[in-house]
Design a binder for these strands. Structure first.
Length: 559
RNA sequence: UGACCCAUGGUGUAAUUGGUAACACACCAGUUUUUGGUUCUGGCAUUCAAGGUUCAAGUCCUUGUGGGUCAACCA
């Protein structure tokens, strides 16, 4: 299945690139970049940005750099650098050459700043942050000039060099671009471009005590790397004039910025700050909790990288706000998993079933197809004996219409084994069924059925002599509201779904589960797709439910 | 009381750049099936509003309406 454009329609970024190609801009070169700040873990929203950059570049024979936008040392850490690299690789993308760092350009950026000072379009401001903020005005009211705005070039240069030399404490002064304090675009009102931070940097150590602001680093870094198309999300739209202003003032390679709408997914949040809060409050087990929207979480949950890529492709690239339905993500992952998952049987809520005419002490080995979608996937063996476990919900005393499962005097097939008929059942003092007694039809053996009996239902089961106890972690959406962060009057944590994790410790699985690998996708038949969790040990097998199977019967019952 | 961006079904994207709304998901009804899974079939919008240009407008123009974004020594 093609993950990219199956049709010929192009998104607006592709149209821009094709126009550039047509006009011979940059000799037909396409060079993009993905520029995360190493201050947190990548999430599903980043996956979309990664997908756009890497796939688009690939489509036109171009390259994509990975550049860590590390201009704020107090928030960044090498731990994040490593997790980001790991996640991008897992998604299936290879960046051009080595990973790059904005901090590698600090000396160049510093020189650029001196250039602006010498041109008379940058000055040192010694006012407090509050005063500078006040002078900015508001979107509807123009700002006022700083009293330091007209210092001489010499004085500015001298002070800037003193800043770099570490002569001043944090906050004593900043370097600002001299643009227009009355500009309708707030960002053009003499933006700050350098500030003092006596802080240790994960990459440059203590070499610097002044650091460039985002706006003074990003466009120039793109330019230094000869990036042709710098794609970012919509919230940077207002930065574009400034991005261009610096490049023009400095007369450097004219990278161009284009903005796309970020992808939002219903019931998921993609704010680093809020994801961190979930971790800190202990509402999730960590950044890789399988309920998290982080790539590490999705990976642990059992999502396939190709599914995430296909989801990105399916959701398109555009400039309007969007909220993707979780159903689409689930549809994609089910579709992919259906093709590759090994089918096994697991009873999640066990009820004892005795096959009364099956000889006591006898067992037999039955083959079980690994994947009905794929003949070449082969089979594995299951054991059958006199006593087995079935799902409590698969036996009903007083079944509704069109109930195909087991009930008194009803026939049903045990998947991969025999047809059975329920004869008797035993109840406890509360009237609850604790045991079902059946007879089986030896001539109805799976694959060689001569019984002539027709059954509507086929059920999964697990043999009692070989069953393995399992811990299952069943996940649901983390929030009860599709957009938990959109309520002005309520904190997003108020929508935390307390049932987002249900742990099942009574499940019993067929013996084959002891042999499955750590990354082998599984389908617990009639239940869902699962993946072994890293918390598993020799004595304890833990599985995460990636996504449940579609259940049209349950849906019908609800109505 | 400003600037910029956006507006197609329940959701998300398309529409040969002015030629008579397509695809996917969801939903509904069937079909298939030794997983109530899977498969397959059918159903499901006249494009925010009002004017205008034109033989022809989702596509162009005007004016509205609605939504989003912009003031951190964050990115």
């Amino acid at each position: 299945m093609s993950e990219n454009t199956e049709n010929e329609s192009k998104n607006f970024i592709q149209e821009i690139i094709e126009k550039d190609l047509e006009m011979g801009t940059h000799e037909g070169r396409v060079h993009m970049r993905f520029p995360p700040e190493p201050n947190g873990y990548l999430h599903i929203g980043h996956a979309k940005a990664i997908w756009i950059n890497f796939e688009t570049a690939k489509m036109y024979g171009g390259k994509t750099n990975l550049r860590f936008d590390d201009t704020n040392p107090v928030k960044e850490d090498v731990e994040y650098v490593n997790s980001i690299k790991k996640d991008i690789s897992w998604l299936g993308y290879e960046w051009e050459g080595d990973a790059l760092y904005t901090s590698d350009y600090f000396e160049q950026l510093y020189q650029y700043a001196e250039d602006l000072i010498k041109k008379g379009v940058a000055y040192i401001d010694e006012q407090s942050a509050e005063d500078i903020a006040t002078q900015k005005g508001t979107p509807t009211k123009p700002g006022t000039n700083s009293p330091f705005r007209d210092r001489s070039v010499e004085e500015n240069l001298e002070k800037f060099r003193a800043m770099r030399a570490g002569d001043h404490p944090d906050g004593a002064m900043v370097l600002r671009a001299k643009i227009d304090m009355a500009a309708p675009n707030m960002l053009m009102r003499d933006p700050l471009i350098y500030r003092i931070k006596h802080a240790h940097h994960h990459n440059t150590g203590d070499a610097w005590c002044i650091y460039p602001m985002y706006d003074f680093a990003h466009g120039q870094s793109d330019s230094i790397e000869n990036i042709t198309h710098s794609c970012c999300s919509l919230e940077f739209m207002h930065h574009r004039p400034l991005y261009n202003w610096f490049i023009e003032q400095l007369g450097i390679f004219p990278s161009k910025q284009y903005e796309f709408a970020r992808m939002n997914v219903a019931y998921m949040i993609t704010s680093k700050r809020r994801l961190l809060k979930l971790v800190e409050e202990g509402l999730v087990s960590g950044w890789d909790d399988p309920r998290m929207s982080t790539l590490s979480g999705l990976r642990r949950r059992g999502y396939l990288p190709e599914s995430i890529r296909r989801f990105c492709a399916l959701t398109g690239v555009q400039k309007r706000d969007n909220l993707q339905e979780m159903a689409l993500l689930e549809s994609v992952i089910r579709d992919d998993l259906n093709a590759v998952a090994t089918r096994v049987m697991v009873v999640m809520d066990p009820l004892k079933l005795v096959i009364t005419n099956y000889p006591e002490g006898q067992t037999e080995e039955l083959p079980s197809q690994n994947n009905p979608q794929d003949e070449s996937a082969g089979h594995h063996m299951m054991t059958l004996s006199r006593e087995i476990w079935i799902e409590k919900g698969d036996f009903m005393l007083d079944p509704p219409k069109k109930y195909f499962r087991l009930a008194p005097d009803k026939h049903v097939r045990l998947k991969g084994a025999y047809i059975i008929k329920a004869d008797k059942y035993i109840t406890d003092d509360k009237g609850e069924v604790t045991e079902v007694h059946c007879t089986y039809f030896p001539e109805s053996k799976s694959g060689s059925d001569n019984s002539g009996i027709k059954v509507k239902g086929t059920m999964h089961w697990v043999d009692s002599t070989s069953a393995i106890p399992l811990e299952l972690r069943l996940y649901d959406r983390l929030f009860t509201d599709p957009t938990p962060t959109s309520h002005e009057d309520k904190d997003f944590l108020e929508f935390y779904n307390k049932e987002s994790l249900v742990t099942n410790t009574q499940a019993l699985g067929e013996k084959h589960l002891a042999e499955v690998g750590a990354t082998e996708p599984l389908q617990f038949m009639r239940k869902g797709y699962f993946i072994k969790d890293q918390d598993s040990s020799d004595g304890k097998l833990v599985f995460n439910r990636t996504v449940a199977l579609r259940d049209s019967w349950a849906k019908k019952q609800k109505k």
